[in-house]
């Protein structure tokens, strides 16, 4: 829906929602920043990280999953734009692809969570961070699938775009949060 067609009150509502979502994203991402700092402080107490005798997990599979997550965010963005332009068919395809890539990411990280050997503080931190992110990805992914149903039922449309726009914003959040975690968990 173009801004010109909105009443001043609707424009204010849209502005409030966008500002609110941005502030929420900034605020909640700091929980992830906190966990990154936790990781740093804990690894600082050890002569090497992973601690001696513990094998670091391979970055290959989660690296590919990260690329898939990035692609899913791009697809979610494209889908929202398609919906705004009134093209529900394009939205459906792009949104489903975004959801599928998101689901794949969740499966890969869940596999990582399950397959990391128990090794004390290293696996504790690894599992805590991946689980914390997984919970967010699952919750927001579920919300995105509800948006798909909303579009099918006509509740979410070019005239009522905010649910899709908000869900996309939250999915960006999942991506940024993972981009904070991935290097700390797998690369550094």
């Amino acid at each position: 829906m173009s801004p010109e067609s909105l009443t001043p009150a609707e424009l204010l509502q849209q502005r409030n929602r966008r500002t609110g979502l941005t502030i929420f994203q900034i605020s909640w991402i700091l929980v992830f920043v906190c966990l990154v700092i936790v990781n740093w402080q804990l690894r600082g107490n050890h002569p090497s990280w992973p601690p001696p005798g513990v094998k670091a997990p391979s970055a290959l599979l989660p690296g590919l999953a990260t690329l898939g997550l990035l692609a899913s965010a791009w697809l979610a963005r494209a889908a929202t734009r398609s919906l705004a332009a009134g093209s529900r068919a394009a939205f459906r395809g792009q949104w489903r692809a975004a959801l599928a890539l998101g689901a794949l990411f969740v499966l890969v990280i869940a596999y990582e969570w399950l397959s990391i050997p128990v090794s004390g503080i290293y696996s504790d931190v690894f599992r805590m961070m991946t689980a914390f992110h997984l919970l967010h990805a699952l919750a927001i992914g579920l919300f995105m699938s509800m948006i798909a149903r909303g579009v099918r039922a006509g509740r979410v449309s070019a005239q009522n775009l905010w649910p899709a726009e908000g869900a996309t914003g939250l999915w960006y959040f999942v991506v940024v949060a993972w981009l904070l975690f991935f290097p700390v968990l797998y690369l550094i």
Partner: peptide, 28 residues
Amino acid sequence: PFLTGGLTLLILDRTAGTSFFDPGSGGD
């Protein structure tokens, strides 16, 4: 959000057997 992060770790240490705050097991 930093309190949220800390409390999450505290609850895990108390209920899930993690050792984020236990120096004897590599925590701090």
